[in-house]
Design a protein around this nucleic acid. Structure first.
Lengths: 355, 355
DNA sequence: CTGAAAGCGCTTACAG
DNA sequence: CTGAAAGCGCTTACAG
């Protein structure tokens, strides 16, 4: 099969064509010193003529690094993860690395299979957004020969390097902003509330509510768009309807906005809304959406660099836990008036400072 | 370096541990027949104990396929390409393939470097969205040993398998829809107008205008957000302002919508608008945006499958050119009234039927 | 400055 | 059913 395609030239072929030993070719390719200029020229020429490309697989066998890393995210087409993926790939490229990209679809067994395939290849390291921070297989790979860095969600069953954001403080600041607006009945809506990141955000919400001595309300975990519609309808039919909403992630924010639009409930006027996770098009919605902005690209860049450092042994210390700050981007859905003609919001930096 | 990590077990290690020859281990792993059940059990046991993972690189050297493909898109975080990427990765996984994902940033030289790295590894095949359909390096790789399939944009300097959509017919239908609304001054705005796909869409626009005997207007190519603001401002200050806009891609649609919002020009009322390339959040904008919907996932799936077939030699014919149909999703920005309570639009299928 | 030998971890024929 | 030999394409010491 594939007999239509010509066979690739090997280093031996080049050596023969150039009339030198294979070692000389190898040295030329790798920019080794001690190759006579003239010889090098002959070799270069032969390489070009035969369209020779070094076989990376063979090189790896001799103990070299593969110069490749793996990245596994729940969903490549998710706005947040696509930004992370792009940044990872960019950082990898800058260091001469290639990246395997796989999606787990939030399914731990698919994720495990993908990790396995990557380890086989082998890769030099893996960047992982675990679907289930408690999956048992994580324990095995965390203690394996290949360095692992988690992004966004740390493991719960083992310790590895991890890079994430200020989930709790971010959520708290978001809810505090709503409180400053005078809202009293603030409901929290999430999706995938079993994730560690979500738990942190919910905890941040509760802290803010508690600190302000406001009534603690039922929290909603939405699994689908339809569930969101039902929850919102129910909420706004009830006796004491909420006057503000805190949506703890991307998906819940979008579902809730959709539902509000359908029901003719206007954000900023009928109800305040702040979401966690900011998306580009929030400026295009009327009113524009106030949200906690995560440094997605930064997350990808930092984690990729950390992994590469591990791979190169530049990091002797044990596991590092990196937490990046988030920003509250204030627009109009919270009840604020547009500050300027531009559609961009006001940015408030959030760090986990003393409360 | 990396001395903290234990060394991986090899097939030899397993053989020794199980007290058998290496071949028996190899056969067991590959599910070869003719291995005594008892022997197999011993081997499995040793594999588990040593946490052995076959080294894919070594296997490749013996002439096996790498079971990996490369995918190069301009930008992973772009909505459209992230959907394509996700679908590609899914199709690959279903066939036991892993995918290298790289971004070219619309830069042909970065793209070439990434292709080179992938060919080195080597990959079994490459899926490519060329930044520049005329780049000379394309000629070389098109005639190389590794099968290539282009997505979205075919090559102009060589022929390979390609998968794309009905750009011209889609654009024509979009503009015809505007014409049916009674608009006469329909302006076309694009970004990256040098791309083949854009040229096709512009051609579709012109066809529709010509067929309706409408005045042909200046076309705008926007390179940045700011350029969009200037163009729109200029247009709406001029004597005969446009009564409708056709934005030929994702970026131009978004930039234009932003600008219109800033200027207080309302779509559907003050000006009709139809875009090419439909994005999820178009339903959340007020008024919701009418757009030509591209089957992004389908594009990814179809191209990945085609490539895999090529790799496995299931395809003897010369290059295939696949063109997928697009759909006009009618919402409100064109001037139509919402048909129902749901936010979804009306779908009109577009194929390149006789005009 | 350059080359012949040995080996990386696996698999394909070839023999038992 | 199982194993010893040879080789995939490269590189690392070792000799010249």
């Amino acid at each position: 099969m594939r007999n239509t395609f010509p066979k690739r030239a090997t280093l031996q072929d080049v050596a023969r064509a150039a009339g030198v030993g294979p070692m000389t070719v190898s040295r030329t390719i790798n920019g080794h010193p001690y190759v006579a200029e003239e010889t090098a020229k002959k070799v270069q020429e032969a390489i070009r003529r035969l369209d020779y490309r070094p076989n990376h697989a063979a090189r790896m066998l001799t103990g070299k690094l593969s110069r490749s890393i793996g990245l596994i995210v729940p969903d490549i087409s998710d706005t947040f993860f696509s930004l992370v993926s792009h940044a990872v790939q960019e950082a990898a490229r800058e260091n001469g690395y290639l990246v395997w990209l796989a999606a787990s679809d939030e399914d731990s067994s698919i994720e495990e299979a993908q990790v396995e395939m990557m380890l086989h290849h082998p890769v030099d390291g893996i960047l992982l957004v675990p679907s289930d921070s408690r999956a048992k297989y994580l324990k095995t790979i965390a203690s394996g020969a290949t360095p692992i860095v988690t992004i966004d969600r740390p493991m719960e069953v083992a310790v590895t390097d991890s890079v994430g954001v200020e989930n709790r403080a971010g959520a708290r600041v978001a809810v505090e902003h709503l409180i400053e607006h005078g809202y009293r009945n603030i409901v929290c809506l999430t999706a995938n509330s079993h994730l560690l990141t979500m738990k942190e955000r919910i905890a941040g919400y509760r802290e803010a509510i508690r600190n302000a001595r406001l009534p603690r309300l039922k929290e909603y975990n939405l699994s689908t768009r339809v569930a969101a519609q039902e929850a919102i309808s129910e909420l706004f039919r009830s006796e004491n309807k909420p006057d503000a909403l805190f949506t703890a992630n991307n998906a819940s924010t979008i579902w809730v906005i959709e539902t509000l639009k359908e029901l003719g409930i206007e954000m900023g006027r009928d109800v305040g809304l702040v979401g966690f996770d900011d998306v580009d098009f929030f400026t295009l919605i009327t009113p524009s959406v106030t949200a906690v902005h995560q440094p997605a690209s930064e997350l990808g860049k930092v984690s990729a660099r950390l992994l590469l450092q591990r791979i190169n042994g530049e990091f002797k210390t044990s596991s590092v836990r990196t937490v990046l700050p988030v920003t509250l981007t204030v627009r109009e859905s919270c009840g604020c008036k547009p500050k300027s003609k531009t559609l961009e919001g006001l940015h408030v930096e959030v760090r986990s400072v003393a409360r």
